[in-house]
């Protein structure tokens, strides 16, 4: 994305040299946005983990674009992407929270599910 994409790619390359690829393959792709573009949540029953990973990806894209826009406030393309991803993130979070419980204390619940759901630092919950 924008000027960072090249930097990120370069990092991957130099990391690849440092670590044998079979030991350190990155499970996280910077641009899983293509998957999100044609968001098929409705068609395909997604697992909790898959949905959470999409939320993480969109959240990352929004953070990255926000930091970029902080120093490139007149970049129209970045602004358009920020608008698109933040709206998708908002919708997906709403949907996830209705199905699996709150991601923040601002999500209203009939019972206090905030303390029932696991915390992100606990092994196996990511």
């Amino acid at each position: 994305m924008l000027d960072n994409e090249e930097e990120l790619r370069n990092c991957d390359e130099c990391c690849e040299k440092k670590c044998p690829p079979k030991v350190a393959t990155c499970s996280y792709k910077f641009s899983p946005i293509q998957d999100i573009e044609d968001d098929t949540c409705e068609e395909k029953k997604e697992t909790k983990a898959e949905m959470l990973q999409k939320i993480r990806c969109l959240d990352f894209a929004v953070v990255e674009l926000a930091e970029y826009l902080d120093t490139h406030n007149d970049d129209k393309k970045a602004l358009k992407l920020h608008k698109e991803y933040s709206s998708k993130l908002h919708d997906l979070k709403e949907k996830y929270q209705k199905m699996f419980g709150p991601l923040s204390i601002y999500f209203p619940c009939n019972k206090w599910r905030w303390i029932e759901e696991p915390w992100p630092w606990e092994r196996g919950n990511n």
Partner: peptide
């Protein structure tokens, strides 16, 4: 605001 999700997944 706290979001109950890590920025990047960690399962060691």
């Amino acid at each position: 605001t706290y979001n109950k999700v890590l920025q990047y997944p960690i399962n060691i």
